[in-house]
Every structure is written in C-alpha cells, then in structure tokens.
Computed example of a mutant assay.
Amino acid sequence: MEDDHDRPSPLSGLWSCVVGGLLLVLLLIVLDPVLRVEDCPNHGGSFSGSGGASAFADPAWDFFFPLLALGWVVLVVMEQALPVTWRGRSRLEGWVRAGVAVMASMAASCLLALSFAVVCR
C-alpha cells in the first residue's frame, strides 16, 4: 500500500481561489446585473446617460459586491500562508503557485467588480 501523505494535493493552495471564484460567478448569475449600457435604467438614448444608476436591482450590491471580491482576494492570500499549502513542494513551486493564485484572484476581482461598477455610470 502506498503512502499518499507525501504527495501534495493538486488543489492545495488553490481551494479559496477556485471555490471563491466560482461562488462569485454564481452570485453574479443570481444577481443578474446589467451588462450593457443600453440596458441601464438611466439610459436615455445617449451613450453617456445621466449617470448614478446601479447595474444591480438593489443598489446596495454596488458596495457589497466589490467588498466580497476584496474578501476573496484576502482569503486567497491567507491560504497561501498556511503550512499545508507548502507541504511537499519546493520553494519555487510554492511561490509560483502562490503568485498565480493571488494574481489571478486580483485580476478577476478587479475585472468583475469594476466592470459592474462603471457600466451604468
């Protein structure tokens, strides 16, 4: 019988990145925000509109969604500091995985949060 304790899990250190990203996408599907300027409630035929509308049905999500995206990035960074994330990996492999996870979550959260923050402004 082989001992699998020495072999690290392929998702070790990436759980919060993958699961958190999927949860944010699921939340966006449920919230069904406005994706086009033409669909904004303040769109009056001009490209710029009158501004100040929300992409979400409830304007409170203009605050909560970026806050959740920031929380996701913080959780990804915290996961990278856990010893189990680094167990069985070389320093280089650990740093590369940590860098990819943090940069991917930061890029995705900025893309998601900013795209809905400016669509109806």
Rank of each mutant, 00 (worst) to 15 (best):
M1H: 07
M1Q: 03
H5T: 14
H5G: 14
D6V: 11
P8E: 11
S9N: 14
S9T: 10
L11A: 14
L11F: 14
S12I: 09
G13D: 05
G13Y: 00
L14Q: 06
C17F: 13
C17D: 04
V19Y: 01
G20M: 06
G21F: 03
G21K: 00
V25L: 15
V25G: 07
V25F: 09
L26Q: 10
L28E: 05
V30D: 02
D32N: 14
L35V: 15
R36A: 12
V37A: 15
E38V: 12
E38I: 14
C40P: 08
N42K: 04
H43P: 08
G44S: 06
S46F: 02
S46N: 13
G49F: 00
G51S: 12
F56W: 11
D58I: 07
D58L: 08
F65D: 02
P66Y: 00
L67D: 03
A69M: 08
A69H: 01
A69G: 06
L70Y: 05
L70P: 04
W72A: 03
V74W: 12
V76H: 05
V77W: 01
M78P: 00
M78C: 10
E79L: 11
A81G: 04
V84P: 02
V84E: 15
V84K: 12
R87C: 01
L92P: 01
L92Q: 07
G94I: 10
V96W: 12
G99N: 02
V102L: 08
V102P: 05
M103K: 09
A107V: 12
A107M: 14
A108N: 07
C110D: 06
L111K: 13
L114Y: 06
F116M: 06
V118D: 03
V119E: 02
V119A: 02
C120E: 02
